[in-house]
Every structure is written in C-alpha cells, then in structure tokens.
Simulated scan of single mutants.
Amino acid sequence: MSRRRLLPGLLAVALLVGCGVPVDDEPRLVQTPPGAFPTPAVSSTVDGDGRVDEPFCFVRDDGLVVVNRRVDGLPGVDTHLQHLLAGPGPGERRQGLATALPGTVAVAGATLAGTVATVDVRQAGEETGRNDEVLAFGQIVCSLTQRPDVYSVAFRRGGQPLEVPRADGSLSVLPLTAADYRPLMPR
C-alpha cells in the first residue's frame, strides 16, 4: 500500500480517536436544566368561564390525595400555600381528608423564582407531638408542583437550605418534586 493512501487513513483514525468525551476523575453533580418539564402531576384545566383548578394534597389514612378546588384564578404560590395551611374544607373533611401540617411544619411564606418555589420554614415547637413530617412536607411539595408554574420546591430555615424527609425516609436539601412522594399517593 502506498504512503499516500496510508497517511489519510491514519490521519482519519487519529482524529476519530481524539474526538471522545473527556472523563472526569471524580463524579460530579449534574444540575437540572432550567425550565419546566411536563409531568403527569401538572394540571391547568380552565373551563369556559375562565375558572381554573387550585390543587391541594391532603392526607387520607397514611397517604396523600390530590383535590382540586375551582377558583376564578390561580393565586400566587404564597397565597396558595396559605390556602393549603388552612386545611381541608367541611366537604373535604366529610370525605375523610385531613392535614398533617398544623404543628408539624411552621411555614413562614413562599416565593417563586423561575419554576422553583422556595418555602421558608420556622422552627416548630417541641410540644406538638406530631411525627408525620414526611406527610406534611409531601403535602406542600405535592400541592405546589401540581401548579403549571412550579416544577420543584426547596425549603429553607433561617436563609439556609433545610434537610427535608422524602417518602423513602431519606433527607434532601435539593429541590423536591411530586415524584419524591409518589409512594404516598394511591394509584
């Protein structure tokens, strides 16, 4: 074989070998790309007269149940959270729905930046006697991520990220989604 034919072939092989993806020495954290991702939980049903669903996750037995209330317009995340903290209405209570929030998670407020809702939490009193934090945090995450403008929920206390229990019992300081509490939701 002539050198003229061999040289372009070797050059092509050298270029292909050099075009690989570099390998890191250690694993690295991959950041979630910005923007909302469609999930089965997201709902923004609007009827003919402009009313929309305001979604809530309440507790039944040891699980979370999604309930939608028809409202004239979806409120901001802080107002939505205040509605959740008020608990189920009389009709919802007759259906066996309850809340794990009072006495478990002391919420100071919520803000929305992009598609991440951040909930500020105060220290709950020691006298509450409640131990269902997973359901309480699940109610907040599940309710807010049902909104079309919220993909995940982060928690902080005193301006610092707060470790929050997920349904599997693990703790996370990263923003959470409804998928983190899916085991608590009936199919």
Rank of each mutant, 00 (worst) to 15 (best):
R3G: 15
R3M: 12
P8E: 03
L10E: 06
L10Y: 02
V13K: 04
L16G: 11
V17T: 07
V17M: 09
V17I: 06
G18N: 11
G18D: 12
C19A: 15
G20S: 15
V21E: 12
V23E: 10
V23D: 01
D24K: 05
V30Q: 05
Q31E: 13
T32V: 10
T32P: 04
P34G: 11
G35N: 07
G35P: 00
G35C: 06
V42E: 15
V42G: 15
T45H: 05
T45Q: 05
V46M: 06
D47E: 13
D47I: 09
G48T: 09
D53E: 14
E54Q: 14
P55H: 11
P55K: 15
F56V: 06
F56S: 14
F58W: 15
F58T: 07
V59H: 02
L64W: 10
L64T: 10
V66W: 11
N68F: 00
R69K: 10
V71W: 01
V71D: 03
V71A: 08
G73W: 01
L74A: 12
L74N: 08
P75T: 11
G76Y: 02
G76V: 14
G76W: 00
H80Y: 05
L81W: 01
L84W: 04
L85D: 02
A86L: 15
A86S: 15
G87E: 10
G87R: 04
P88F: 05
P88E: 11
P90L: 15
G91H: 05
R93G: 05
G96L: 02
G96R: 13
L97M: 05
L97F: 04
A100Q: 09
L101G: 12
T104R: 08
V105F: 03
V107Q: 03
A108G: 13
G109D: 02
L112S: 08
A113D: 07
A117R: 02
A117S: 14
T118W: 03
T118M: 09
R122T: 12
Q123V: 13
G125N: 06
G129A: 10
N131W: 02
E133H: 07
E133V: 00
L135S: 10
A136M: 08
V141G: 11
V141F: 13
D149I: 03
D149L: 04
Y151P: 04
S152M: 10
S152I: 08
V153M: 11
V153G: 12
F155H: 01
G159N: 00
G159W: 01
L162F: 00
L162V: 05
E163T: 05
V164R: 05
P165M: 12
R166V: 01
D168I: 02
G169A: 12
S170I: 00
L171W: 00
P175G: 09
L176N: 09
L176E: 13
D180R: 03
R182D: 11
P183T: 09
L184D: 06
M185V: 15
M185R: 15
M185S: 07
M185F: 09
P186W: 06
P186M: 10
